[in-house]
C-alpha cells in the first residue's frame, strides 16, 4: 500500500489523552472551592480608604438639615446611614441606630427614593437617631460611594475618608463592631 495522503490529524501523543481528565480535575477543584466557601453575594464598595466624593443633598424632613460633602469632614468620625421608610430591614435596625446614638455616635441619614411624609412617619414610629437627613430620589449618592442596597452604613472619619462599610441591617451583635470601627476612625 503506497498511500500518498499524509495523516491528519497525527496520532495524539499519550499524554494528550489524559488532558481532558486533568482539565476536569481543575474544574472540580474550582467548584469544590465554590461550594465549600459560599461566595459573598453582596457587592462591596471599592471606596473604602478613599475620600467621600462631591455631593449635596436637600433636607428630607422639616426638622433636620440636609448636608453636603463639606459637612462630612468635621474632624469627628460620623456614621452615614442609607435608609428608606419603605424598607423593612431599616425598621429592624432602628433600635441599634438609637443605641449607637446613645453611645455618642454622630449619625447622618440618607433617605433613598422616599417622600417627606413617609420619612416623618417612619421616624415618629421608629425613633430618630439622625443629626442630619438628606433626600436622594435617584440613588445618586449610592453610585458615588459604591452602595448597592438599603440599608447600608458607612463609617466616615474626621477627614471625610470612607473607612468601613456595613451591608444590610445593623443587628445587635454588629453594634460593638461599628463602635470599634468608629473608634479606629477617630484615631
Amino acid at each position: 500500500m503506497n498511500d500518498p495522503v499524509p495523516s491528519v490529524p497525527p496520532k495524539a501523543p499519550r499524554w494528550a489523552l489524559w488532558l481532558p481528565l486533568v482539565l476536569f480535575g481543575g474544574f472540580v477543584v474550582l467548584v469544590l472551592f465554590g461550594l465549600l466557601r459560599p461566595a459573598e453575594r453582596e457587592v462591596r464598595s471599592k471606596m473604602i480608604g478613599k475620600p467621600m466624593p462631591e455631593f449635596s443633598l436637600q433636607p428630607a424632613v422639616a426638622d433636620r438639615p440636609g448636608f453636603a460633602r463639606a459637612d462630612m469632614a468635621t474632624g469627628q468620625p460620623r456614621l452615614l446611614n442609607i435608609f428608606a421608610s419603605w424598607c423593612i430591614p431599616c425598621a429592624v435596625e432602628a433600635p441599634q441606630l438609637l443605641a449607637l446614638k446613645q453611645a455618642g455616635v454622630q449619625i447622618d441619614g440618607v433617605a433613598i427614593r422616599d417622600q417627606r411624609e413617609d420619612v416623618e412617619a417612619f421616624l415618629a414610629r421608629h425613633g430618630n437617631p439622625f443629626a442630619r437627613i438628606g433626600a436622594d430620589n435617584v440613588s445618586a449618592i449610592q453610585f458615588a460611594i459604591g452602595s448597592s442596597g438599603v440599608p447600608e452604613s458607612f463609617v466616615i472619619d474626621g477627614k471625610g475618608v470612607i473607612r468601613y462599610q456595613h451591608i444590610g441591617e445593623i443587628r445587635p451583635e454588629h453594634v460593638p463592631v461599628i463602635l470599634e470601627k468608629m473608634k479606629e476612625a477617630g484615631r
Binding site: 423593612i88 422616599d114 441591617e169
Partner: peptide
C-alpha cells in the same frame, strides 16, 4: 424585587426622570 435584602416593600416614588 426591589431589594435583594429580605423582602422590602415597594417604594412609592416615580422612577427617576
Amino acid at each position: 424585587l426591589p431589594s435583594a435584602l429580605p423582602l422590602a416593600a415597594q417604594d412609592k416614588l416615580p422612577p427617576a426622570p
